[in-house]
Write a protein that binds this DNA or RNA. Structure first.
Lengths: 176, 176
DNA sequence: GTTTGCATGTAAACGGTTACATGATTGG
DNA sequence: CCAATCATGTAACCGTTTACATGCAAAC
């Protein structure tokens, strides 16, 4: 999902500045399946404005750069819907962790255990965040995505924990 | 995980040509968490050769371009291990499907149901492929990653199916 | 007879990150 | 006092995809 489309999507829920959009990317509960930095958001909003898909109103502030609050226009809405109606691409799961585990036999065992532990606590954090957000949720879509995230996180967590135990067992055996 | 590192990894399992590496990317059972096209693989192998991390031997063929078979060198192995020892980045799950579902309330219901069905059959395909591969697996790492993939796919599938039923129920209610 | 598989590569275009530039305010 | 938050933006860089270029063989 490219940044422009994501910005359009977020703006359907209410007006926002570039800064606020960024925040929603990183801690809006979608962190696990989308991200973007300022360096891509500001130019994206600029181009959306040029194309008439969003409008801007400047709110002057003292001692700070003016807030530029963006709103989605009717054209923007139909562009978003158009994008959503296009055939969806396959999901991609980029996992440096899984890649590293593929070659665990080349690594010291302590490192493997450490990676597993890191992966476990990472997933626990994600799950906690998702559970936190679960209450304050509006639409069916949001509930669906939150539920999907939690389901995946829970299953992953269970698997990782079971494998860590096995690894522990195997190394104890090897020591005997 | 960048293409160069992935190529190094695959070459630890045996020599291969650029073409074969591509194949392993797309149907080696890692399709769900890594991908690369020829346009990135060939230059990557070129640079790895320059840097002395892999070596090439050319096998002349009649009526076809010569096969260039790459092997990983000792320097390549230690480079790979070095890369694996670096702190692993967070996993990223890019899901155009989840994004679209977030805004399902802007879409016709038939479309939402179609997307769900597509997601279900996609995951079923993945799961079938993973189960197929599960038998012919060597290292602990490969078994681990295969198991992780299956776990996630199964959990996702269950969730998607349960949600599709709910959607069906809701639309039947609405029709009454 | 058309698609798939084998086999290599290049160049332009694209999308995004990282680093830079600026600067006041609030909380630990 | 230092870090984080608020607030905007630019430019260089990087890795990847897409499209192009070539061409035979086997299978459907």
């Amino acid at each position: 999902v490219d940044v422009r489309t994501f910005c359009l999507g977020l703006l359907t829920r209410g007006d926002a500045t570039g800064y606020e959009i960024r925040k929603q990317f990183e801690d809006g509960g979608y962190r696990h399946f989308a991200d973007a930095s300022f360096g891509s958001i500001y130019p994206a909003l600029g181009r959306l404005t040029e194309d008439g898909l969003v409008s801007v109103r400047e709110e002057p502030q003292e001692k700070r750069p003016d807030r530029k609050v963006y709103s989605i226009t009717p054209a923007g809405r139909s562009c978003l819907v158009g994008a959503l109606l296009k055939p969806v691409q396959e999901d991609r799961h980029r996992s440096p962790f899984a890649f590293a585990m593929l070659f665990s036999h080349l690594l010291p065992e302590a490192r493997v255990r450490a990676m597993l532990d890191a992966a476990i606590s990472e997933k626990e954090t994600t799950l906690a965040l998702l559970n936190e957000r679960a209450g304050a949720i509006g639409t069916w879509g949001e509930r669906f995505v939150n539920g999907l995230g939690r389901t995946v996180a829970e299953a992953t967590l269970d698997y990782l924990k079971s494998q860590r135990c096995e690894l522990e067992g195997a190394s104890r055996e090897a020591a005997e």
